[in-house]
Amino acid sequence: MFALLVYLFLIIPLIIITGAAFGTDEYLRFPPQGFSLKWLANIFEVEMFVRTFKISLEIAVLGTVLALLVGIPAAYGLSRYDFVGKNFLQGFFLSPVLVPGIVFGFSLLNFLIIKYEMPVYTSLLIGHTVIIMPYIIRVISSSLENFDYSIEEAAISLGASKVKTFFVIVLPNITSGVIAAFILAFINSFNNVPVSIFLTGPGISTLPIQMMSYVEYYFDPTIAALSVVLMVMTIILMFIIEKTLGLSYFAK
């Protein structure tokens, strides 16, 4: 009973926001009056939303791909080998998740943009790549752990080199882990605020940042409509995670 109430607390706000997205009123009200899709349509009228959506998508995809390229070998090394300083390096690779985002974002602004005059877009991409890395390493490592090492040894004993074994035997068997890692990383990048907020510049901003500045000035249901779009996206991605990694992964 208590649990149900707590869950109502978790769910109701999201339902309310969904309801509010389809009202006809000029300002946010609940229950909404009437039903219309005009706020949904209005998202596309606000040019900044469309543009930042594209940037967010780009950064999330590029950042995730970069982090995968760097993170998969690292995860492989960390979970398959024994070496000096292993524990320390394991901690180091997971450390971005411990650093407060706001501190990291500010430091990047300071260091990359101001000190070394890096372009804003590049800095934004780098920042996202770094914060994504722990998710990649963690998910890939856990799928490697579920993949018996003796299978790799079998391939090697049959004459395949280590590199070939990785591509022909290991990779095909951890694809669901890679997909899950990709999605988890993608979501975290796409939703990120505290790092992105420092790494915006002329014409460069991300969707969550744009949404935040929008609600400071306007209080119409456009944001609610946009929220619904994002929630639908989350549901789709969650569905994929469930199919690949299993949502119980989060209870660890």
Binding site: L14, I16, F30, P208, V215, A224, M231, T234
Partner: peptide, 14 residues
């Protein structure tokens, strides 16, 4: 997994 902006915004509505 939902954007924190969305989640905070929902409480602005409430």
């Amino acid at each position: 997994l939902t954007s924190p902006v969305v989640r905070s915004f929902s409480w602005m509505v409430i």
